[in-house]
């Protein structure tokens, strides 16, 4: 039995942490108008303006990116990979606060996660839940992180983050009420290959 004092510390502290995590995440989440109907989301991956989003959010070679500040820029498509459902956009904007990237291989089923995006166009909307299942190690198994988090169209390309605000996935699909996200380690490899010039834009 906890004392009466302890009863009112965990929840307010969690609450406080929660607002800090969501504020941090909203600061690194952008809206992406990629030539498809509606709006998608994206994550500021580097302080020099590299944006990661879903391949299915971007149709052409140009996209419009709206930063959390409301500042909008034209972005150029750097790379597009339909298989992993990832795309990288270059905004040529410097001095940005980039996302803190987590280790998706260290995820545990049941841990807390937070998603930020623009569900139905509502920029910066936050939903929370837990990790439902982790990607299978078998090559034939599912490649996505599954999360018990409510998403809607417009969350695509946005971050899925852990309880410390570290991005551990890019929300890509909704299946049977579950959020499916591309693991951050897959995104890291995608971005690294991009730097080596291995993946060219279509």
């Amino acid at each position: 039995m906890r004392g009466a004092g302890a009863r009112h510390t965990i929840l307010p502290e969690s609450d406080c942490d929660f607002t800090a995590v969501t504020a941090q995440l909203r600061g690194v989440t952008v809206q992406v108008y990629g030539g498809r109907t509606g709006v998608g989301s994206g994550v500021i991956w580097t302080s020099r303006g590299l944006i990661v989003t879903n391949a299915h959010v971007v149709r052409g070679r140009l996209a419009r990116v709206v930063f959390p500040t409301g500042h909008a820029v034209e972005a150029r498509l750097l790379a597009w990979d339909g298989d992993s459902d990832l795309a990288a956009l270059e905004t040529n904007t410097g001095g940005l606060m980039a996302a803190d990237i987590g280790d998706s291989d260290a995820l545990r089923v049941g841990e807390l996660v937070v998603a930020v995006g623009s569900p139905f166009g509502l920029a910066g909307a936050v939903t929370a839940g837990v990790i439902h299942a982790i990607p299978s190690r078998r090559p034939s198994g599912p490649r996505f992180i599954e999360a018990d988090v409510r998403l809607a169209p417009g969350n695509s390309g946005g971050p899925l983050a852990d309880s410390r605000g570290r991005v551990i996935g890019i929300n890509a699909r909704i299946a049977g009420g579950l959020a499916l996200a591309v693991p951050s380690n897959v995104v890291t490899r995608f971005v690294a290959s991009l730097r080596r010039g291995a993946i060219a834009a279509p």
Binding site: E13, D17, V109, G110, L112
Partner: peptide
């Protein structure tokens, strides 16, 4: 910031 990660760890 420790409460939320603790909660998360305990759920896992």
């Amino acid at each position: 910031m420790t409460a939320l990660p603790s909660l998360s760890n305990e759920l896992a």
